[in-house]
Every structure is written in structure tokens, then in C-alpha cells.
């Protein structure tokens, strides 16, 4: 554990809780992509199956359970409790275009051919692109609520902080996992455009709207 990893995890946790609280408080999931949320649920499920097979620390297990619970909780709010507020007309990204190629890639580029390892690798590849339906939705509607912008910023920062963590671990522990590093860089790059808008608009008190 180092400061970059911890900050990344807390940023990730903040993002997930921010989204849950936003939906709960406003009794609405308008502007949130249900498809991205489905992809994140798949990501957490396939990655954290190791809850049953390997124990790292109480911290790790606790966070995994929180991420899984919050993710399914979000899906429940979006597709059941507040379903009428879900803006499915603007959530039109075809997620099979992300699900299938990630799956194929996880069979081609993987460290070890075991079911758990392939599922873990799949979760890494899918996570890298899981935000695309949400970013697509923002670009289609041309705007995002400020709280949604904070959510996206926290979620994007998390992997960027993990990249610093991997650089740190490379020098201090000789730890190097190219699969997770390349996917993490791709994931962070996808947010760059949004980061720019967030810094130039949202942080200056303006609403995020596209020109």
C-alpha cells in the first residue's frame, strides 16, 4: 500500500458513493448511463470472484464487498426503483461492441490460462472502456449535471492515481503487470477530454455543457 494506491481507492470509493447518493437524494438517475453501470457491475463481479479464493487483507476484502454492493445497488435504483427517470433514449451506445472484443482480447493476451485469470483479465479490459457509454451519453445530450461531473472526475482520477502507484511499485517492489498498466493508461486517456472540460468549466463554477 502506498499513498497513490490509497488515494486511488478513496477516489474510486468516492465516485461510487457519490453516484449512489446523487440518485437517492434526487430520486432520479437522469443523465446517468445504465449501460456503463451494467458494465461496471460485470467488471466488479468478474474481478472480485477471488473474494472466495484468495485473501489479501481485510481492507481489500472490505472494499471489494463495498464496490460490489454499491454497484448492484446502483443498478437496482436505476432499473427498478427509479426506472421512470432513466433516460434510455440517450443511452444508445451498443455495449456488445465493448463486451465481445474485451472477452476475445482476454483470451489472446492473458498471463495464465485459468478461468480465474481470464475473468480477471476480462475485467481489466472491460473496465478500461466501461465509461464509454456514459461519455457518449454526455456528448449526445451535450451536458452533464455538476454532481455527475464530480462523479466522472473522481472515477477518472482513480485509474490515473493507480498509474502513479504502478510506477512507484515498479521502483520499490519490482512489481510490473503490463496488462493492467496498458489497460489503465487506455482507461485514463479516455477521460482526458472530460478532464479538460471539468477543469476549464466545472471547477470555475460553470455547468458542463459542450459547445
Amino acid at each position: 500500500m502506498n499513498i497513490f494506491r490509497l488515494s486511488g481507492d478513496l477516489s474510486h470509493l468516492l465516485a461510487i458513493l457519490l453516484l449512489l447518493v446523487k440518485i437517492w437524494k434526487t430520486r432520479s438517475c437522469a443523465g446517468i448511463s445504465g449501460k456503463s453501470q451494467i458494465l461496471f457491475a460485470i467488471v466488479y463481479t468478474t474481478r472480485y470472484l477471488d473474494l472466495f479464493t484468495s485473501f489479501v487483507s481485510v481492507y481489500n476484502s472490505f472494499m471489494k464487498v463495498v464496490f460490489l454492493t454499491a454497484s448492484y445497488g446502483t443498478l437496482y435504483l436505476m432499473f427498478f426503483k427509479f426506472k421512470p427517470t432513466y433516460d434510455h433514449n440517450h443511452d444508445s451506445f451498443r455495449i456488445l461492441y465493448l463486451i465481445i472484443p474485451s472477452l476475445v482480447l482476454s483470451f489472446i493476451i492473458v498471463h495464465v490460462y485459468t478461468v480465474m485469470e481470464i475473468l480477471w483479465t476480462y475485467s481489466i479490459y472491460l473496465e478500461a472502456v466501461a465509461i464509454m457509454p456514459q461519455l457518449f451519453m454526455v456528448s449526445r445530450t451535450g451536458e452533464a449535471e455538476t454532481i455527475t461531473s464530480h462523479y466522472l472526475f473522481a472515477l477518472g482520477s482513480y485509474r490515473a492515481l493507480y498509474i502513479l502507484n504502478w510506477i512507484y511499485r515498479y521502483y520499490t517492489e519490482d512489481f510490473l503487470d503490463m496488462i493492467v498498466i496498458i489497460a489503465g493508461i487506455v482507461q485514463t486517456i479516455l477521460y482526458c477530454d472530460f478532464f479538460y472540460l471539468y477543469i476549464t468549466k466545472v471547477l470555475k463554477g460553470k455547468r458542463l455543457s459542450l459547445p
Binding site: 494506491r5 481507492d9 474510486h12 477471488d50 484468495s54 489479501v56 487483507s57 481489500n60 472494499m63 471489494k64 464496490f67 498471463h111 495464465v112 485469470e117 480477471w120 493507480y162 502507484n165 517492489e173 519490482d174 512489481f175 510490473l176 503487470d177 496488462i179 493492467v180
Partner: peptide, 10 residues
């Protein structure tokens, strides 16, 4: 190098 199958991150 640590084996890649040591998954200690989230």
C-alpha cells in the same frame, strides 16, 4: 518480479 497472479490491488 512478483508472479502476475498475485492480485493485491482492487
Amino acid at each position: 518480479l512478483k508472479p502476475s497472479y498475485v492480485k493485491d490491488e482492487l
